[in-house]
Amino acid sequence: ALNRGDKVRIKRTESYWYGDVGTVASVEKSGILYPVIVRFDRVNYNGFSGSASGVNTNNFAENELELVQAAA
């Protein structure tokens, strides 16, 4: 299972961040479909780089994520 702070690569092909590595911000335990919230260094097309207006978190299912580096 994934944990907060883990570095993960995104495998959801239609995602803006496909192939990117993000950090797990939190994992919901309530049984929702996309329980893993991942935070990225770059914002998506809703904002400009360096601006706070873009979105830099997204929810994924565990099977859409590949663990790159476990949290220390």
Rank of each mutant, 00 (worst) to 15 (best):
A52K: 08
E28W: 05
N56T: 09
T23F: 06
I10M: 01
K11D: 04
P35T: 11
G22E: 01
N3I: 14
Q69R: 09
N63T: 13
A61E: 05
R9Y: 06
A61H: 09
T13V: 14
G19W: 05
F60S: 00
T13K: 13
G31C: 13
E66A: 04
F40W: 01
S26G: 14
I37C: 14
A61K: 08
V38C: 02
S51Q: 11
N44I: 08
L65A: 00
G19P: 01
K11V: 06
A70P: 11
N44T: 04
F48S: 14
I32T: 14
D41A: 06
G22P: 02
Y18F: 11
V8T: 00
N46P: 12
N63D: 10
N56P: 04
G47W: 05
V38S: 00
T23K: 04
I10N: 04
Y45L: 15
Y45K: 13
E62Y: 15
V36M: 01
N58P: 03
S30W: 09
A71Q: 08
Q69I: 08
F60I: 01
V21M: 04
G47I: 08
V24C: 03
A52C: 15
Y34H: 13
K11I: 09
A70F: 08
S53K: 07
E14D: 14
G47F: 07
L33F: 07
R12V: 08
Y45C: 15
D6M: 03
R12P: 03
E66T: 06
E28Y: 08
V68G: 01
N63C: 11
D6W: 05
W17Q: 01
S30V: 10
N58T: 11
F40A: 00
N46S: 10
I10L: 08
I10A: 02
L67V: 06
D41M: 05
V68K: 01
V36R: 00
A25Q: 15
N46A: 07
E14I: 06
V38K: 00
N63W: 14
F60C: 01
N58V: 10
G50W: 07
V21Y: 05
E66K: 03
Y16M: 04
A61M: 10
N63E: 12
N44V: 07
D20G: 03
A71G: 07
V27N: 03
E14H: 09
E64P: 00
G50L: 06
V27W: 03
D41P: 05
Y34Q: 07
Y16T: 04
P35E: 11
K11Q: 08
A52P: 11
I10F: 02
R4G: 05
G22Y: 05
A61N: 12
K11A: 06
A61R: 09
P35M: 15
N63R: 08
G54V: 06
G50D: 14
V68N: 01
N56W: 08
G5Y: 02
K7D: 02
G5C: 09
E14P: 04
N3K: 15
E14Q: 09
P35N: 14
R9L: 14
L67M: 06
N46I: 07
R9H: 03
I37M: 13
G47M: 07
N63Q: 09
V36W: 04
T13D: 05
N46G: 10
Q69C: 11
L2E: 04
A72Y: 11
L2A: 03
F48C: 15
G50F: 06
E62N: 04
V24D: 00
S51Y: 10
A25K: 08
D6P: 01
